[in-house]
Amino acid sequence: MQAETLSGGFTNPAVQSAAAFRGVMEATARPGNIETITGATPPVPMSPAAGAVILTLCDTDTPLYLAGDLDCDAVRKWVAFHTGAPLTGPSHCMFAVGDWAALGPLSQYPIGTSEYPDRSATLIVEMDDLTPEGATLSGPGIKTTATLSLPETAAFQDNHGHFPLGLDFMFTSGDRIAGLPRSTEVR
């Protein structure tokens, strides 16, 4: 087994996952806010932020879909060793991670049911860069409006149209993360 597989996890899981979760929660609760989350060094091409989200939220109870370039031997072994999350296809996943082009089409992910809208997938979108400019966001968590560099707008408008069903997104780049839950209106 490679050293890369065994290393790169949290060195103090209880404390570091708590700090990482605060970042993830603030990002989800305040769409458009860019938070920094550290502590994980997953194998390339996965970003440290995406790695920290997976270490914080994924375990044997959460089917995970690795999309595109992330579906490689190094990442698979790292995820298996550190989380034990079963790898699956998009239609049965709770979490999916990959770049925007690899994750699509969005119609293949579970969006929850009208009685259980929480049973929907969370997509972790790996981005080249993350900046507070671009599409205009409004809705819960945002005082007036916010802006965020989204890969596109139509898909997120469509997703918001399903509310209270829908997918929830996290965008990661390096050690930075931003959230876009289904409740956010995108213009």
């Binding site: 404390v15 989800t28 109870d61 709770m94 509310f163 839950p181 409740s183």
Partner: peptide, 26 residues
């Protein structure tokens, strides 16, 4: 463990909190 609960329990609660924030009031 830090803050009493084991880590798997915390992950389960954290996932529920994030879904709760995504669908306010549900």
């Amino acid at each position: 463990n830090f803050a009493y609960l084991d880590e798997q329990t915390k992950r389960m609660i954290r996932r529920a909190i994030l879904k709760g924030l995504a669908v306010p009031g549900y």
